[in-house]
Design a protein around this nucleic acid. Structure first.
Length: 585
RNA sequence: GCGCCCGUAGCUCAGGGGACAGAGCAGCUGGCUUCGAACCAGCGGGCCGGGAGUUCAAAUCUCUCCGGGCGCACCA
C-alpha cells in the first residue's frame, strides 16, 4: 500500500521536495479513511500553491487507481484514502498464504554480529541483565526474520580484578568451612575487606570442599597453608567459580529462551599464542602502533593513533571528540579493559561483519565514544567499513511493595533473574521488559507483576491467540470444513467495517516489524500486538463467528479465514518477542 | 562543572512537526442461557515541567530555566 502511494507521489516530480518520502498516517479515528497523508500541506510552500488545490490535484490523479475506492480532501489539505474491498481482500489473501512470509525482507541484507548480556561471571544474572537479554534476543530475532545474517555472542569478562575478587571471596568461604580462620588471615585474603557474599559463593566453596577431584593434592595443600606461601591456587578457585557461575547463567538464559551462537572468553585474548608467544591484545596493539607510524596513516586526518606518554600507551580518542585520550597499557605494564575490548572488536572485524550491535548497560554510557573511536582506527588499518551501533539499556528499578530493592551484588542483596522467572514466569517477564523503549528506565514491581499477573498485557495477547485456536477447534467439532488453502471467493463475505479495519491492521504488521529493525526498538511490536489482540477481542465479542445471524456457511468460512490470519500474525509476533503462543490457557 | 537520557491522565508509559493528545493499570457503572468473562460496553480524569522563539501548523524543532536519572579514572 505504501509503495503504491510512494510511486504515485513521486510522479509529481517532487522527489527533491520530499526527501523523507511521502508521509503516511493510519488515522486513529474513524472517518478519515484507511490511510491519510498530509503531503499536500508539505508541497504547498515549494509549489507555491494552496494546500487544498494540491490535494484536489492529487485526488484526481490517484482516484483512477483500482485499489482505491475514494479519496477525500479534508481539513486544511489532508488526503484521506479509502481502499476498495477487493484490495483489502487481496491483502488478507496474501497474509493467509502459508508459503509466503508476512514479513518482507530488507532490500540489502547485512552480516550482523549482536553481542548482548555479557554479564561478568561473578554472580547469577539479575533483573537488569534480564532486560538486556530480552531486548538483545528479540532484536536478533527481528533482524533475522527481516533477512539479515545474524550471529549472537556473549562476551565473558573473565579476566581482571573482578575475577580475582571472586576467587578470593570463594577461597575465603572455603577457608571458613575448614574452621577457625583468624582475622589476620582473613585480612590477608581480602585486604580491603570487600567480597562477594551471595549464597552462591558459599555453595561453590562447599562444592570444592566436598568434591576432592576439584583440587589437586598440591593445590589443596597450598590453599590450606594460606596466602603467605603461594597463591597460585587462586586461579583454580577462579576457574571453578567461573565454570559454576557460567553454567548457571547458561541455564538461566536457556530457560529465558535464549541461546547464543558463541561464547567468547576474554581470557583467550590475554593468552599468549603458543607459537609466537604474543597474546591477541599484544598483537592488536602492535598492529595499531605500526599502522600509526606508517606513511599511509599520516595522510588520514581523523584516525586516532597510538602513542606513548608518561610510560603509558594511549589511543588518541580526543581526535573524535572524547574529553581526553584513553590509556591502553598503564605505566605499571597492566592492560586496561579498553585494550582487551579493542582486541575483541579487532577479532570481530576479522570475521567479516558489516554491523556490530553491542547491547550495554546504561552505566557504560561514557564508553561509547571511545569504542567508536577505536572502531575507526581498526577499520582504517583493516581497510574495512564495519559499523558499530551501541544500544544502551536503561536501568531496571526493582521494586517490592512500591519500594526500591537494593541490587548490590557484593552485599548479596539482589534479586536474580531466575527468582523473577519463578515468581512471574518467562512469558510475562519477557513481555514486560519489552513494553518500554530500552532508552527509558523501567520500573519492575515484583508484587505488581506477581499479584496482577492476570492483568498483564501478555495474557491479553496470548488469550486472543488461544481464542483463535479454540475457534478453529470448535469449527472442526461442528463439522465445518476449513479449507487448507483460502481463495478470494472465501473472503468476499468480509464486508463489515470492523472486518476491513482488522485486515488493514494485520497488513500493517510488516511495516511495524521493519520499523523495529531500523529503529532498533522492540516496543512498537509489543504495542502493536496488544492493539491487534484488542481489535480481535472486540471483533470476537460482537460477531458470532461460528453461528452468525445470517450469511450461512460462506460467512462462517470468511470469518474463520480472518481469525486464522489474526492467529498467524499473533503467533509470529509473539515468537519475535520470545513469548509463547499457547493454544489454550 | 561538562556530556547523554528523561519530565505527557492518580500510577507506568506510547506518540518525536500536522485533524479533537493515546494505551494499560487504578477508580466508578453496566454485561456471562451463546464459539472461553484471562473478555466486552461506558464514565470520569490533561495549562504534554515553566518561559521564550522558529512555522500556515509545536507534546514534537531551537534557546533558556526548573526538576529527576546516568556517565565523566593509568577502574572493570
Amino acid at each position: 500500500m505504501n509503495d503504491l502511494l510512494k510511486e504515485k507521489g513521486s510522479n509529481q516530480s517532487s522527489r527533491e521536495i520530499l526527501p523523507k518520502g511521502v508521509r503516511i498516517e493510519f488515522p486513529k479515528k474513524t472517518g478519515f479513511g484507511d490511510l491519510a497523508s498530509p503531503v499536500a500541506m508539505h508541497l504547498a510552500s515549494p509549489l507555491k500553491m494552496a494546500p487544498r488545490a494540491i490535494a484536489i490535484e492529487l485526488q484526481s490523479r490517484l482516484s483512477p487507481l483500482k485499489e482505491i475506492s475514494h479519496i477525500e480532501v479534508a481539513g486544511p489539505g489532508y488526503l484521506n484514502i479509502t481502499f476498495t474491498l477487493e484490495f483489502v481482500h487481496e491483502c488478507l489473501h496474501k497474509l493467509l498464504d502459508a508459503d509466503q512470509s508476512p514479513i518482507s525482507p530488507v532490500s540489502s541484507s547485512k552480516k550482523i554480529l549482536i553481542e548482548y548480556v555479557s554479564a561478568n561471571p561473578t554472580g547469577p544474572l539479575h533483573v537488569g541483565h534480564g532486560r538486556g537479554a530480552a531486548y538483545g534476543n528479540s532484536i536478533a530475532r527481528i533482524l533475522k526474520t527481516l533477512g539479515h545474517d545474524v550471529t549472537s555472542e556473549y562476551y565473558i569478562n573473565n579476566a581482571g580484578n573482578q575475577m580475582d575478587l571472586l576467587a578470593r571471596s570463594t577461597y575465603l568461604a572455603w577457608r571458613d568451612l575448614q574452621g577457625n580462620l583468624s582475622d589476620e588471615e582473613r585480612a590477608k585474603i581480602l585486604p580491603d575487606g570487600t567480597s562477594y557474599q551471595g549464597a552462591y559463593v558459599t555453595e561453590i566453596a562447599r562444592e570444592i570442599a566436598e568434591n576432592p577431584s576439584l583440587l589437586s593434592e598440591e593445590e589443596r595443600k597450598q590453599a590450606l597453608a594460606g596466602m603467605d606461601h603461594s597463591s597460585l591456587f587462586l586461579s583454580r578457585f577462579s576457574q571453578i567459580a567461573e565454570d559454576r557461575i557460567m553454567e548457571g547463567i547458561r541455564k538461566d538464559l536457556n530457560r529465558f529462551g535464549i541461546e547464543f551462537d558463541r561464547y567468547f572468553s576474554e581470557k583467550t585474548l590475554h593468552a599468549p599464542d603458543p607459537i609466537e608467544g604474543q597474546s591477541s591484545i599484544d598483537k592488536c596493539l602492535a598492529e595499531i602502533r605500526d599502522f600509526s607510524k606508517s606513511p599511509e596513516a599520516s595522510g588520514l586526518a581523523d584516525i586516532p593513533d597510538l602513542f606513548e606518554e608518561d610510560g603509558a600507551l594511549w589511543l588518541r580518542t580526543s581526535l573524535l571528540g572524547d574529553d581526553k585520550d584513553r590509556v591502553l597499557r598503564k605505566s605499571d605494564g597492566n592492560l586496561t579493559y579498553y585494550a582487551a575490548d579493542i582486541a575483541y572488536h579487532r577479532e570481530k572485524i576479522s570475521r567479516g561483519h558489516d554491523l556490530f550491535i553491542d547491547v550495554w548497560g546504561a552505566d557504560h554510557h561514557g564508553y561509547i565514544l571511545r569504542m567508536q573511536a577505536a572502531m575507526k582506527t581498526l577499520n582504517a588499518l583493516n581497510k574495512t567499513d564495519a559499523e558499530l551501533k551501541v544500544a544502551l539499556i536503561q536501568l531496571v528499578n526493582l521494586l517490592r511493595e512500591g519500594k526500591p530493592v537494593g541490587m548490590s551484588k557484593r552485599s548479596g542483596d539482589f534479586v536474580t533473574l531466575s527468582d523473577v522467572l519463578d515468581e512471574v514466569g518467562v512469558d510475562a517477564t519477557r513481555f514486560l521488559y519489552l513494553t518500554r523503549s530500552h532508552e527509558s528506565s523501567l520500573d519492575f514491581d515484583l508484587d505488581l507483576a506477581k499479584s496482577k499477573s492476570m492483568d498483564n498485557p501478555v495474557y491479553y495477547v496470548q488469550y486472543a491467540h488461544a481464542r483463535v485456536c479454540n475457534l478453529l477447534k470448535q469449527a472442526e467439532i461442528r463439522g465445518i470444513k476449513v479449507p487448507s488453502k483460502w481463495n478470494l471467493q472465501h473472503l468476499s463475505p468480509l464486508v463489515g467495517d470492523d472486518e476491513k479495519a482488522l485486515i488493514l491492521l494485520l497488513d500493517r504488521f510488516d511495516l511495524v516489524v521493519s520499523e523495529c529493525g531500523s529503529m532498533m526498538e522492540v516496543h512498537p511490536l509489543t504495542d502493536y500486538l496488544t492493539e491487534l489482540a484488542g481489535h480481535f477481542h472486540r471483533y470476537y465479542f460482537h460477531n458470532r463467528i461460528l453461528s452468525p445471524e445470517s450469511g450461512g456457511e460462506p460467512l462462517i468460512l470468511a470469518r474463520l479465514a480472518l481469525s486464522s490470519g489474526v492467529g498467524r500474525i499473533l503467533r509470529l509476533g509473539l515468537s519475535l518477542l520470545g513469548v509463547s503462543a499457547p493454544e489454550s490457557m
